[in-house]
Amino acid sequence: MFEVASQIVINLLIACFIGFLAGYIVAKSRSSKIKAISNEKSENFIDDPKVRTSINPIFKKGFSVDNKPLVLSFPKSTGKDNLKKIKGINSRIEAELNNLGIYHFEQIAKWSNKNCDWIEAFLDIPGSIKNNQWLDQAKILQTGNETIYSQKVVDGEIEVD
């Protein structure tokens, strides 16, 4: 009985060794194919900045996202706010803010100084947020009140492009 058990154990060890060897050979051949495909894709796909920003705009710049403000995946059911009511935000900046996930005055009103610095660097608008007092305007606009500038935008006295 001991001889039969030892033969079974020996056969299992041999089968295990052959299985590991076969798995290693298969994995090695697949990994070389995957590396070739990934190198081909990375040269044509990931290094292209247009493709990277279309995947996620965070990849637009190569800096930390530690100070990125909180964003939403989509606007609230009431719809997005007209961010152009804030002095210093034109159509281009509003579109870029929306691409980041910033749709509402409430979001802007909650920014910290580090969030402002991050947005200014990301959108390449140095000093604009602080000089135009976006946070103060957003705090007023989130309550439903209007600022002098936003009232002029609503009345059509100022066209924001």
Rank of each mutant, 00 (worst) to 15 (best):
F2V: 08
V4L: 13
I8E: 07
L12D: 11
L13W: 13
I14E: 09
A15G: 14
C16K: 13
C16Q: 13
I18C: 12
F20D: 00
F20Y: 13
G23M: 10
G23F: 10
Y24L: 10
Y24T: 10
V26K: 04
V26L: 11
S29H: 05
R30A: 03
S31R: 13
S32K: 15
S32F: 07
S32H: 08
K33V: 04
K35V: 05
K35N: 10
S38T: 15
E40A: 05
K41G: 03
E43G: 09
F45S: 05
D48K: 15
D48C: 11
K50M: 08
K50E: 10
V51F: 14
T53C: 02
I55K: 11
P57E: 03
K60N: 08
G62W: 03
G62Y: 07
G62F: 10
S64C: 13
N67M: 02
P69M: 01
V71K: 11
V71F: 06
V71A: 06
L72R: 15
F74R: 15
K76S: 11
T78A: 10
G79R: 13
K80T: 06
I86W: 00
I86V: 04
I89V: 12
N90S: 05
N90M: 02
S91H: 13
I93V: 09
E94K: 13
L97H: 00
N98H: 12
N98E: 13
G101I: 12
I102C: 02
Y103K: 11
E106K: 11
I108Y: 01
K110F: 02
W111M: 14
S112V: 04
K114Q: 12
K114S: 09
N115C: 01
C116Y: 00
D117S: 08
E120M: 00
P126A: 00
P126N: 02
P126I: 00
G127Y: 04
K130R: 14
K130D: 06
K130G: 02
N131P: 01
L135T: 15
L135W: 00
Q137M: 09
K139V: 09
L141S: 01
T143M: 09
T143W: 04
Q151Y: 10
Q151I: 08
K152V: 05
K152M: 13
K152G: 03
V154A: 13
V154S: 09
V154L: 11
G156T: 06
E157F: 07
I158M: 07
I158T: 08
E159R: 11
V160T: 10
